[in-house]
Design a protein around this nucleic acid. Structure first.
Lengths: 316, 316
DNA sequence: TTGTAGGCGTTATCAC
DNA sequence: GTGATAACGCCTACAA
């Protein structure tokens, strides 16, 4: 205890927690700080948390740390949290449905004042402030992209290019954002008076996407334009096209979603829907922050935009 | 307090912390559990941490959450930690040197029993158990890949293909692992009686790597084979080659490092050094775990291997 | 087998 | 402006 070093007692608390407003004299404060410095002393967070009932920590639960989309989201959330003097604890649920529930419990183990659920459906059990990311359960604050618009624009892009056989390479993960995409693909295709041309699903791994794409493009009446739920999935199309001797975009056009960094490096560069992942993370923390402050924040929907690159062109 | 629900007091502690060995009767235990369930009661971790002095949490500090290599590392560490009933707290230092020191403090704020530093040089200040990942400061346990061997093999591969002008696209980040690579590139090139042919550095972003690669390949006596510190950097070579009308591997051969998922999707697929990132994370936790148990673990060096794909061939 | 009591390091309230 | 003192919720002897 630094209390021995100085002479005081709970004065230390005032000083070290920055509440020495007009309550501690300058000399005393200096003494305390010096002693703390010398002893390498710092406040015990567990004790503070116990006493105050607040941990200044928020948790983030994510389906898959491994997905390139996630990094920027965490960074954005973490940056926002830091600004508000909060830390972020992360738990990766590793796409394991069984672990989702367990994870929440485990997360609670590291006491947090609130939670952000990224893509994973948040548990019903309330009490704590919770915000959903890329999911919008009824009655729960959320932050997500305008997936509807993104999907519409992507599919319309294909249609306006003249494609009449439009396929869909979708995510295997059963999450709201992907259900929305499926619906909208179907809707836009129907609105153009067309029939959907193939639908396959894959996990977010290039090898799985590769196989699914092979099924999609291997069909006799293969699509000439493919909408993919994600750039990673779109990579599967590139792989399959290479196998099948199909050229992009001359034989097949591809549109992705997310604008992941590698999209530009593909040959040809991938046409995709650009989103701001960091902003998503930051927005999630902001909403959570409002929630923790006792407010009742609205859900937030972030804009997206089509980036046309070289992977789309007129049908053969 | 669940104590009111049941009838007992500290018995609850025994039951809920799984120490009811032969000390609590079955009926009592059942009562306690039922009450806890009903009240949605769970142990308060802050109190436990305060009392026991141990948080069952370890921290991981990373330079860049955004780098695709990091995800699997965290997953591996987290999986290992979970098995040992530990949680992992993550802090992203966002490539910000100023923030590194501050981060450690911030991390300490969320009390952890030990720390893993990924690529970032760990602070001197000891006391806590600390393991370094991909760095091996003197006297500190570490876990890293056999970068020396990986670099040697990659460069030798180029040499054995007949290349005599070998360039190096290196990381901008000043970390041990990249210093090693630079040294070994120079050494192998010299050992083959050759002169190094260009050295550029870039941040881990495709656009930055792109520019650096343009400088490297734009030179009059440009290299015919390029060793890249990382697959992401290698992506820059693809971009620059496209700009300059250079074919891979006919005009330039490229070797990467890490075998990131997208390496296979590049056209042509990237020859690279494969590593097991999850294993790195798991090993890091294991070492940390030993350290926390009071042992004095050795550093661990994980093997790597060359994967030859389509981006390397004989020089023009 | 179960209950009682003390203390982990903070913060907050209240005297001085 | 500063120092006692109690309480946050848990674990752990020790006593019953």
């Amino acid at each position: 205890m630094a209390r021995r070093a100085g002479v005081s007692q709970s004065t230390v608390s005032l000083v070290l927690s920055g509440k020495s407003a007009g309550r501690v004299s300058a000399p005393t404060e200096a003494v305390v700080r010096a002693a703390a410095e010398e002893l390498g002393y710092r406040l015990n967070v567990a004790a503070r948390t116990l006493r105050t009932g607040t941990a200044r920590t928020v948790g983030m639960v994510v389906t898959d740390v491994t997905h390139p989309f996630f990094g920027p989201v965490l960074r954005g959330a973490q940056a926002a949290a830091w600004r508000a003097d909060y830390a972020v604890t992360l738990v990766d649920v590793a796409n394991d449905p069984d672990r989702e529930a367990a994870s929440f419990e485990a997360l609670r183990a590291g006491p947090a004042d609130g939670y952000m659920f990224f893509t994973v459906d948040p548990p019903e059990r309330s009490g704590e402030p919770v915000v959903a990311i890329e999911v919008s359960p009824p009655g729960m604050p959320f932050v997500r992209f305008d997936t509807e618009h993104g999907t519409d624009v992507a599919v319309d892009h294909l249609i306006s290019l003249g494609h009449t056989r439009i396929g869909h390479l979708g995510a295997l993960l059963d999450a709201e954002t992907f259900r929305i995409r499926r619906e909208h693909v179907l809707a836009r295709v129907a609105a153009a008076g067309l029939e959907p041309s193939g639908y396959e699903q894959a996990a977010f791994r290039f090898d799985d996407a590769h196989e699914a794409a092979l099924r999609l493009l291997g069909a006799a009446d293969r699509p000439t334009g493919v909408y993919c739920d994600d750039d990673l999935l779109a990579g599967g199309i590139y792989l399959a096209a290479r196998d099948l001797g199909l050229r992009i975009p001359e034989d097949v056009s591809v549109v992705g979603f997310d604008d992941l960094p590698f999209a530009k490096v593909f040959t040809p560069p991938l046409t995709t829907i650009a989103i701001d992942a960091e902003e998503l993370g930051a927005a999630a923390f902001d909403v959570l922050s409002a929630l923790m402050a006792g407010e009742e924040p609205e859900g937030r929907i972030l804009p997206v935009s089509l980036v046309v690159r070289g992977s789309t062109g007129p049908p053969p």
